[in-house]
Nucleic acid binder design. Structure first.
Lengths: 337, 337
DNA sequence: TTGTAGGCGTTATCAA
DNA sequence: TTGATAACGCCTACAA
């Protein structure tokens, strides 16, 4: 069924039907309602591809997610959900592309097949091939996370460096002298994953400024890895009294390892960091942490992208989030040893 | 840039370029390589919309997910990931639609806008408007989960009734006489959510057959709800010695409540059920459970849909999964009281 | 207020 | 082995 069939049945030309659909020129009430009746009766809806071909707009966003093979973290999932929802509110559909590196078939289809009006990119590296590819493609895009040189592109990100520094300061204020950073996985950090690098930078700076002793370790993105990691940490550095972390998925395991070591929080040991509120609240005791505003970030990413689509010339905006640290119960004065 | 430009530069007609692209008719090696050189140089890729318009195929699947507002469960996320990955392997893109009820804008766009070749539907109700809508649309579709009357449609599902019955039998064999079912949320069950109803049916049957006393409770899909639920359960039915559950997201909370009640598993209390392996293994002690084969199910859903797309006349296939119950450490002989 | 017609970029049929 | 051309379904400038 197409617009011609509607026109025939209503006894008008195709263009009149089209104008009833779009409202871009006045149509007499009589014909309008007659046409609308036919449309309703046949439950007609215009072919999106024909429309996209003609208009040059697809009303679709591309969302590039990490390859599905590795389980998505809760935070990544949250971004996907909030982006999809924000897009739906703007009557935009979302096309998913699970792509890690460059030269990914699915990624290329989306970027160069004119399937989308713009792209949101997740899990950005400091040097990211996909960003370079998108820049040259002239397709509007916004990244969640940012590259080392994010000038002239749209992005939203969390100020991991600043937040981890504030966590360290908080611990220092409580009298802790030896603190550890539990980072994301070694592979991710080696690949130039921004949050990992920036968290480490903020940690190092703050530790130096406050004259503390700091150790930093990488840790896989799941509970068993967190357990193993903290176990080893406690064995290798028994004098560490606090952890700052950006690895939320490892938290349940970290908690188990601390408990197994007979440490009671916050009396014997403190834990703080950056995490989705969900994880911070599920920690026992609830974790003092900067709550990443996942929904806001996804919504803002869509908003920025929409601007970039409507005004292709203007440099897209960006936003760095620095949420407050919610004081909960996992941090306390350094224990005396 | 379009196919005409490539043709011009290579000094051939548009159709020849098209045939080089598709390989649907022989092209002499000389012209082929000349055309390919131009394509590579300009990094040309055909416009997906024009192609879809002409071919009547979009090479895109629609994936209808629960509205993003309510956090997706781990299992739902797993389905999304496995579907996206299986689709990518078949060079298909995935268009996401977060739709709960019927008459959803995004859902309608996908179904009647000819944006996709087929649809995968998640979170099916026993009576589901969207299924009715898809049936009448003649668009191939496969559901994850099944309706009350799934004849003549494609689906994959887990045999919750049979599996929960086997869990109850396992508990009965261990000497438990009073057992509880912790179901999904009351809203979900009230809405006619299949797994909830089928699990309850299997539970009731098995309890009756083995002459046990059974209580069943609904429970929200998160840890705090699980904690509250088990707390109340223990208070109201102190003689219950085992739980069977299909609510994996509530497991961490259930574990906390049992621990808080001073119950040591499996000595004082047993827990079993149906869950993603991830959750079963994260339980302490690791949970005896039927591990839902999430990846297999997503992959199979895509495969079935692909069949439905290539052979629109034949009734699509279906598959009921009944994974074995993995014996771990959360179940043991009933305690003497 | 409504109709006519051209073209968006592609594929496939028919001719050569 | 290759080329010309007619659709696919829609929107919109131009005409009436």
């Amino acid at each position: 069924m197409n617009i011609g069939e509607i026109a025939q049945r209503a006894g008008v030309s195709r263009s009149t039907v089209s104008y009833v659909l779009s409202g871009k020129r006045p149509v007499s009430e009589a014909t309008r309602s007659r046409i609308q009746a036919v449309i309703d009766e046949l439950d007609y809806r215009p072919n999106a591809n024909a429309r996209a071909l003609r208009e040059g707009r697809t009303h679709t966003l591309g969302l590039v997610i990490p390859p599905a093979s590795q389980r998505l973290t809760d935070m990544q999932l949250g971004f996907v959900a909030s982006v999809v929802e924000a897009a739906a509110r703007a009557d935009l559909d979302v096309l998913l592309s699970p792509s890690g590196g460059d030269h990914d078939r699915s990624f290329e289809r989306i970027v160069s097949g004119r399937r989308v009006d713009g792209v949101i990119l997740m899990e950005i590296r400091l040097e990211d091939d996909r960003v370079a590819r998108l820049r040259q493609s002239r397709l509007p895009f916004v990244t969640i996370g940012r590259t080392a040189e994010p000038h002239g592109m749209g992005w939203v990100d969390v100020d991991y460096a600043g937040l981890i520094a504030r966590c360290v300061n908080h611990l220092a204020d409580l009298g802790h002298r030896r603190v550890a950073l539990v980072n994301r996985s070694a592979e991710l950090v080696a690949a130039g994953y921004g949050p990992g690098h920036r968290a480490l930078a903020g940690f190092s700076t703050a530790v130096a400024e406050r004259g503390l002793t700091g150790v930093d370790v990488c840790c896989g993105d799941d509970a068993p890895a967190g357990e193993a990691c903290v176990e080893q940490l406690l064995a290798a550095h028994p004098d560490v009294t606090a952890i700052a972390t950006i690895n939320e998925a490892a938290l349940p395991g970290m908690q188990r390892a601390l408990q197994a070591a007979g440490l009671v929080l916050p009396r014997d040991f403190s834990v703080t960091g950056v995490a989705a509120r969900h994880w911070a609240e599920e920690f026992r005791p609830p974790m003092t942490a900067a709550d990443v505003p996942i929904v806001d970030m996804g919504t803002e990413a869509v908003a920025l992208l929409l601007e970039g689509i409507t005004a292709p010339r203007t440099p897209p905006g960006h936003r760095l989030y620095s949420p407050p640290i919610s004081l909960r119960s996992s941090t306390g004065p350094a224990p005396r040893r």
